Each structure stands twice: as C-alpha cells, then as structure tokens.
Simulated scan of single mutants.
Amino acid sequence: MAHLRVENFRVFGPVAQGEGERGDALSVSFTAGTNVLVGENDSGKTAIVDAIRLCLQSAASDYYRVSQDDFHLGKDGRAETFTIGCAFTDLSTEEQAVFLELLTHDRDGTAWLCVTFKAQRMDPLRNRVSVTTRTGPDGNGPALDGAARELLRATYLRPLRDAEAELRSGRANVSPGVFGPPERFRPANPESWREIEFWAGLELPRDYKRFVDGYGDAVVFRHLFIAHPEGADPLLKVMQEERQTFLAGEEGASDVAPSESSGMGGFLPWAYHDFNGDVCLLVPPSADNLDWSVAVSFRQCPEVQIFPGGVTEFLQDLAQGEFPRGWPRVGFDWASAEGSPLI
C-alpha cells in the first residue's frame, strides 16, 4: 500500500474547496517495509489504522462496525458521508493478472490498484449506515469481487496493553472460551457442504461454515439453534423446510434453486430461535449489497429485518447484548443439541 487518503472520517475533515482554503482531509504516502506513526493523543493515529482496517476489511479478534461517531463533526455539523481510499502499486506480474480488470494506469504506465470505501448515513437514530467498496481512483470503478477481497484481506493485531485481560474470555469476545473448544465436534464432511451449496446454487460464506463446523448442532444464547450439515436436525433439511414456508407465502413463487429465486425464496435459513420461532437467514450478495448479510424472519409478527454484516458480525452483536426485537436478553451460553451425533 503506497498511499492513503481519508475524508470526513473522525478527526479528518473535508478536502479544501477552493484556492487558499485549508482542508482537513488526510493524504499520506507510505514506503516499502515498516512504517511508524508518531503523534500526540487524539492526533489521528488510531483513525489512520482504523481507516485501513475498514478499507481492507481486515481480520481481527474484535469486530469493527461503522458508527455515527466515525463521521467527522465539523462546524456545520456531522458529515453525511466519509471516504477512505487505499492505493497499491509495485504490483508483481501475477498480482496484475489477478486484478487486471480493476487496475488504473498512470501517465508513466505504472499499474495501480485503487480501493475506495465509502460510508453514508442512512438513519442516525438506528445507526443505519450504507457502505460500498469499489475500485478506481475516484471509487467509480468495478466493485471488488470475493476473490479480490480475499487477496487484499489483512490481519489487524490490536494493541496488547493488558495481556491478561485481553486473553480472558470476556463479554465482547466471541471465542472458543465462550462456546467451548471446537475440537469436541467433528467438522462436516466437505461432501456435505458441497451438497448444500449445489442445492443452493451458491458458495456459502467461509466464516459461517467455520463457525458451524466448530459449534454447530448446538443451542447458543439459550434459544438459538445452529443447524449442522450432519447434526441431529441436518442443515439441508432445515434450509429446505424453512424455505418452503417462505415460498408458500409468496405469490407466484416457484421451487427453483435459491440462487435463481427472488425475494424471500433467495434467502437461506441457517438457525432458528426456539423461544419464539424466529428464523435466521443468510442473505446472498446482490447488486445493492456485495456482501453476505443476515436477516431475521419474525414469526409472531410477520416481518423480515436485515442486519448489516455476516454471521460473525451478527453473533458479535448478540455477544454485545444487541438482540433482535423480542429476543430474551441473555448472556453467553452454549449447549450441545440433545443426542447430537457430533460429540
């Protein structure tokens, strides 16, 4: 990564609007190897690191979601959007081949991969934020597909100021220390996952499959049953039966592959709540949202609510005490399904 630009994100404000005006946006270049940020408190060091995390969707032990406080607060109020751009150069021939359709070339013919993350406030009262990640120097190029995202994904190592406290199982840490060691289960046979994905016509998100392999066929948060491909209530059976319920309520719906369906028929059930019958759904990527999302179908009052982020983020929200409407607010809990064949 050779360059970073940040506009209207936390302490960094907008770019200068005219000659002689002072802009508060950030534009910084990096050198190859190790780069060190030095500055006083509240000067923006953490904001720079978090900006890179957002743009690259870095893997980390703690999930980071955009909040209203991330939008720059200036003299005219809080910004409606913020933009983060990361630019990569000195790409190898192999890297240029992988990102071929996403590259930009400067006047010297040098290839650049420019990635722009943009967030827009939608509903401040409910903390709803719309985010997009696109390529091109102005963020108007093609969107990053799944393979490109994986190649750019980095790992964020958070500051370890108190090692003992950081490594202790805590309320905000969805970890094996909370749900139990995953080795007590056996992962699903790859053929079982392939059977499900063949039926769905979609490749399921990796974080979801990892979680199910480690902790599936169990009840978490006392009421949420996580189906497993080879569990007591097999995942494919759960998906098919719950999907039939959705199709029965959709006029003109046909029983085709979820990837070819519209509306609720395209959603994939993956867990259900035994307290009120609510069903958790996987929402496939679409033209409007390029990432997998999670939705909850409320049984008592027919309605579907979509939650930004995937399964990992959804579970992290539950761990933080942010439950969907009508769900009992309980602490961490994990229990194997009765008679599970996976123990």
Rank of each mutant, 00 (worst) to 15 (best):
L157F: 15
R121C: 07
L151Y: 11
E150L: 15
R128E: 09
P159Q: 00
D138G: 06
P159L: 00
A143Q: 10
V129N: 05
A147N: 08
R158P: 03
L125H: 09
P159A: 00
L152V: 11
P137F: 06
C114A: 09
T155L: 14
A147E: 10
D162F: 05
R121Q: 08
R158L: 13
N140D: 14
Q120A: 12
F117R: 08
Q120N: 05
S130R: 13
A147S: 12
R149P: 06
N127S: 13
G139A: 03
D123F: 07
G139M: 01
C114Q: 09
G139Y: 01
G146P: 01
Y156W: 15
G139R: 02
L113W: 05
T132Y: 02
V115T: 14
D162C: 01
D123N: 14
R128T: 06
N127E: 15
F117D: 07
G136A: 04
N140T: 10
R149C: 14
L113C: 04
T135L: 03
T133P: 05
V115W: 08
L113T: 04
Q120W: 01
P137A: 06
D162Q: 11
T116S: 12
L144G: 00
V129W: 05
R134F: 06
L144P: 00
Y156I: 10
R126L: 14
S130F: 07
T155S: 08
S130A: 10
T133E: 09
R128N: 09
R128L: 12
R153P: 00
Q120G: 07
L144H: 01
L160A: 12
T155Y: 05
D145N: 15
L113P: 03
T116L: 14
R153N: 01
V129R: 10
T155P: 00
R153K: 13
D123E: 11
G139C: 02
A119C: 05
P159S: 00
K118Q: 14
R153Q: 15
L113H: 04
R126W: 07
G139N: 01
T133V: 15
V115Y: 11
G146C: 08
A143D: 12
A147P: 01
G141V: 00
T133H: 06
M122D: 06
P142K: 13
T132N: 07
L113D: 02
A147I: 07
S130T: 03
A143F: 10
T135V: 05
L157Q: 10
Y156K: 12
N127W: 11
L152W: 05
D145G: 10
N140H: 08
A147L: 15
G139F: 02
L144Y: 01
A119E: 03
D138K: 06
A148V: 02
T116R: 11
V115S: 10
A147C: 04
